[in-house]
């Protein structure tokens, strides 16, 4: 595989919170259009790693490149310098993120939530953005909910609005942090359905999830993290049916 087909390239990423080593040398490559699912016990650093990818957290060592560009830093010689607030914001445009607790803007309707990025950040004309936002809401199955505020939507509907809000920025990469963990079981399917469609359309995705079925059927690669390192990675079916590490086996025996 040639280097320029890589959407994400993380090399030896380290992250500490005080004395706590949360990421302990993560190496990961995600190809264009690939869907990578990340599993692992609570506290293993999955969220932290996702947040490092769009620079919501600073990293202490290593590099993360998205679409060939360093995220949050500029390299001069051997040293890395943090980008300005404006430059960081610019690079985040291309990276969509979906959170466990949706984090929709509660004072805006579903449609306004989806329009906020393109209007405020990309400065696109409102009418054009509105048309496009309605299309995206249609794609996630929420055409009839555009005028509702988040508090008037179910969890599954809120999460689909959140996905639409990220998609409105036309990202090259989508990050999902346990997108269905806060949902009632009967609502999980709708959200996973939207994500599956997105994967089929060719979106590059990194998905932290406990939905083993989704990882098996949609994922191109499965990663098992524990203690701030990637313990095992590979084809989802192989890893799930025949894990090569004890830690993976004991984790899978608990969640399957």
């Amino acid at each position: 595989m040639s280097n320029d087909a890589l959407m994400v390239k993380a090399r030896n990423v380290h992250k500490r919170f005080g004395h706590l080593e949360v990421l302990n040398g993560i190496n990961l490559e995600v190809a264009l259009g690939q869907v990578v699912c990340v599993i692992g016990p609570s506290g293993s650093g999955k969220s932290t790693f996702l947040r490092c990818i769009n620079h919501l957290e600073k990293i202490d060592a290593g590099t993360i490149k998205v679409d060939g560009e360093l995220v949050g830093y500029r390299q001069r010689g051997e040293r890395l310098f943090e980008l300005s607030e404006r430059e960081v914001a610019e690079r985040r445009r291309a990276i969509g993120m979906v959170f466990q607790h949706f984090n929709l803007f509660p004072h805006m309707t579903a449609l306004e939530n989806v329009m906020e990025g393109p209007v405020q950040v990309l400065r696109r004309p409102k009418e054009e953005v509105r048309r496009r936002a309605r299309e995206i809401l249609g794609q996630v199955g929420l055409s009839d909910k555009e005028a509702n505020y988040p508090s008037q939507l179910s969890g599954g509907q809120q999460q689909r609005v959140a996905i639409a809000r990220a998609l409105a920025m036309q990202p090259k990469l989508m990050l999902f942090d346990e997108p269905t963990s806060a949902l009632d079981p009967e609502l999980v399917g709708d959200v996973l359905g939207v994500m599956r469609k997105l994967a089929e359309s060719g979106m590059t995705m990194i998905v932290v999830t406990h939905e083993i079925g989704f990882a098996r059927e949609v994922g191109d690669k499965l990663i098992f993290m524990d203690g701030g390192v990637i313990v095992e990675e590979g084809n989802p079916r192989e890893v799930l049916s025949n894990p090569s590490h004890d830690r993976t086996r004991s984790f899978l025996s608990k969640v399957l």
Binding site: L56, A89, R92, I95, V121
Partner: peptide, 23 residues
């Protein structure tokens, strides 16, 4: 206002001052 709001706004590329004003 929860930190999640600021992070969600930052994740769509909004800048600090407009996050303050709009969100």
């Amino acid at each position: 206002v929860g930190e999640g709001q600021v992070e969600a706004a930052a994740s769509i590329g909004m800048r600090r001052m407009s996050i303050m004003r709009r969100i």
